[in-house]
Design a protein around this nucleic acid. Sequence first.
DNA 1: CGTGTAGTGTTTAGCTTCGAACTTTAGGTT
DNA 2: AACCTAAAGTTCGAAGCTAAACACTACACG
Lengths: 188, 188
Amino acid sequence: MADNSADRTAAALGEPTLEEQIAAYQREFQDLDPQVEKVVSALSRLNRRMNVAYSRQTADLGISNAEWEVLKALVLSGAPYRMGPGELAKRLGLTPAAMTHRIDRMVAEGLVTRERDESNRVRVIVELTPVGREKWLAAMRLASVFEEDLLQDLSSEERHTLGELLTRLLIRVEHAQPDAGGRLTDLD
Amino acid sequence: MADNSADRTAAALGEPTLEEQIAAYQREFQDLDPQVEKVVSALSRLNRRMNVAYSRQTADLGISNAEWEVLKALVLSGAPYRMGPGELAKRLGLTPAAMTHRIDRMVAEGLVTRERDESNRVRVIVELTPVGREKWLAAMRLASVFEEDLLQDLSSEERHTLGELLTRLLIRVEHAQPDAGGRLTDLD
DNA sequence: CGTGTAGTGTTTAGCTTCGAACTTTAGGTT
DNA sequence: AACCTAAAGTTCGAAGCTAAACACTACACG
């Protein structure tokens, strides 16, 4: 079971506050926009914390975070919960090689099955087992409690605003490609 | 040079839109709050995209994302840019073992120096070299262009709002510990 | 029909990380 | 002083990932 970085990052002793960190960056790099940096730093820190929380939860269920990602992708594909290793790899941002090994493990643990596609014998079909689906559901229940709790201090309106602003950033990143200088340029 | 997941996740062929993804989750898991899920999913996707962008930029400079993280921590500590391996490991969320190896590489590449602390011979001091500082600065310049561009579509007011909302989430995660059920409970 | 070519998944070798055992030093206790 | 305990880093073996080479199947084209 990988991804046990849980308790190392959890406490985060002596880590500077966001404000302190931004002030330090400004000392070292004058033309930094503190407003931009605040958003970016908060995003990155938040994500680290969230991953730690998820790792802890999945570990409690006896699966790794990596395995949870696979389960999520399969469930998202809808019944009958089948996908090829290649597509899974693309979705999760892994090499096909890594996917092969990950599926090996998950087959051994009974979370998925792997069989050749008889109508096209190059392809392989990875299918969620009932056990795998149960694990996904259990992880989902834990995750949703955590997520609800994370947003607890925000009003419904604030949640909406946050969702919209983040979606706009996401759209900008997903519908654009960086040019040579790293700038994002629209595709269409 | 690790962290070359750049071009695999960049295109993200066939990935469902955020809305589609949330709709799919709701079909499989009824008591899911779509508002919460939207925020969380957007956060997680955004971070993946940003990491891909950073990886590409650091690769262009001939360093890995991992090395950039070390450089950032050292610069943040302020002049004379010295830290012990243990503290670095804690900041970056790594085991001391991993830190040892990472420093090995960075010493070999001339980014940092490693020496024993003569006043306390158990300790080791990792110090940024001028070359390391230059690499940090170059990476920082690239990153700030990308970040400014990422937020391009948001007005100054929207940036402020986003920063504040994210900070509140961060505070909730950083000042709390999860209880047995995964809920976040205040410390003070 | 055979052959070339593209697409899929697996295998192999090397690297990075983790967990755990180990070494060295500092500092307190008797 | 001699010992015990804690703290800091390193070493060791196992796990997981990447890139690149490889094997197999399907399909188009002569």
